[in-house]
């Protein structure tokens, strides 16, 4: 048996490590100042995909939608062991909410072709919505198992997985193809392989290759075409798809394809009034505890 697995990943700002430098004067976060990372639970999805490939054989492809720089997480996926990578990038994808995002990813999955499993992380740390996985499953008319802890087996067009539910777990059996969303607790993503890093750090997208050659018009340059051929043969080619590469209704992409609109963004101003400072001394803390007991706040 051999499995074809497609993993969807997202490059996200590292919201877990917001430092002083990333705060603007008005107290809001300067998103551009945050390092961009591979969304943590998408690494768990990729790890699960690689483990399943080791168990059953097959192929792991990783796809991300984002700005050109999102190619960096695809290189990381190659270092970890992915066979093939796809960057969905186009200005017309920008400003997408979860519905427009899932539409674009569904178009990409269709273009990629049939696969047995589609894997996503449970949620991305920049929005925490956990919506794109199930929306993508619905758009592809696939069943889904969310909050996957582990996959017991895949065989004969069926899968058995353990998934978290509120207050417990379920063991679920389902037909493939199916979409799974994977939890952080499911595994420990493997580190980047040094040998693979040396091998795949040269992997590029069409735009990156073109830029390397001074941004000359790629289509007309036979030289570049020959170079692309060589890179493809060595597995160093990151596929780059835009709106025009997908069979789709362009009105469903990006901001135009997003029903949710941001009406207002409010910065929260912290006033800091009325806080009683308590010194961290024996007396200070004793007086505080006594006051709270007398006021029936404690006990």
């Amino acid at each position: 048996m051999s499995l074809s697995i497609l993993v969807f990943a997202k490059q996200v700002p590292d919201t877990a490590n917001i430092t002083g430098q990333a705060m603007k004067e008005d107290g809001t976060v300067n998103r551009a100042a945050l390092p961009a990372i591979f969304n943590p639970e998408d690494l768990n999805a990729l790890e699960l995909a690689l483990e399943l490939r080791e168990r059953y054989g097959g192929k792991v492809a990783v796809c991300t939608m984002g700005p050109p720089a999102a190619a960096n997480i695809l290189r990381r996926a190659l270092y970890m062991g992915a066979d093939e990578t796809i960057l969905l990038t186009d200005r017309r994808f920008a400003g997408a909410d979860t519905l427009a995002t899932s539409y674009a990813l569904a178009c990409a999955a269709r273009k990629y072709g049939s696969c047995d499993l589609i894997l996503c992380g449970r949620q991305a740390i920049d929005g925490d919505t956990a919506q794109v996985g199930p929306q993508l499953a619905e758009k592809l008319d696939l069943p889904q198992i969310t909050y996957v802890e582990s996959v017991e087996w895949v065989r004969k067009g069926r899968i058995r997985a353990k998934a978290q539910i509120d207050g417990g777990y379920e063991i679920i059996e389902a037909p493939t193809p199916i979409l799974l969303t994977v939890l952080a607790s499911s595994n420990a993503p493997r580190p980047v392989g040094a040998k693979r890093l040396m091998q795949y750090k040269k992997a590029v997208t069409r735009s990156e290759l073109s830029a390397r050659h001074g941004g000359r018009d790629y289509e007309d340059a036979n030289l570049l075409a020959a170079e692309e051929e060589g890179l493809r043969a060595r597995g160093l080619w990151i596929y780059e798809w835009g709106v025009d590469d997908l069979e789709a209704d362009a009105r469903h992409f990006g901001l135009a394809g997003s029903p949710t609109k941001v009406k207002q963004i409010e910065s929260v101003v912290l006033t800091g009034s009325g806080t009683k400072d308590v010194p961290p001394t024996d007396e200070g803390i004793r007086d505080l505890v006594h006051e709270l007991i007398e006021d029936h706040i404690l006990s």
Binding site: D97, T98, L99, S102, G127, D128, T129, A130, Q131, V132, G133, P134, Q135, A137, E138, K139, Q144, T146, Y147, Q164, I165, D166, S258, P259, T260, K261, K263
Partner: peptide
């Protein structure tokens, strides 16, 4: 876990917007 598995599928099918983890809801004009 159930709501987060179900609501996105329903929203996707109905082409409806879906906002996660709201902390307040009120009626106003837009």
């Amino acid at each position: 876990v159930v709501g987060r598995s179900l609501a996105p599928r329903v929203a996707s099918r109905l082409q409806a917007g879906l906002t996660a983890d709201c902390t307040a809801l009120r009626i106003d004009e837009f």
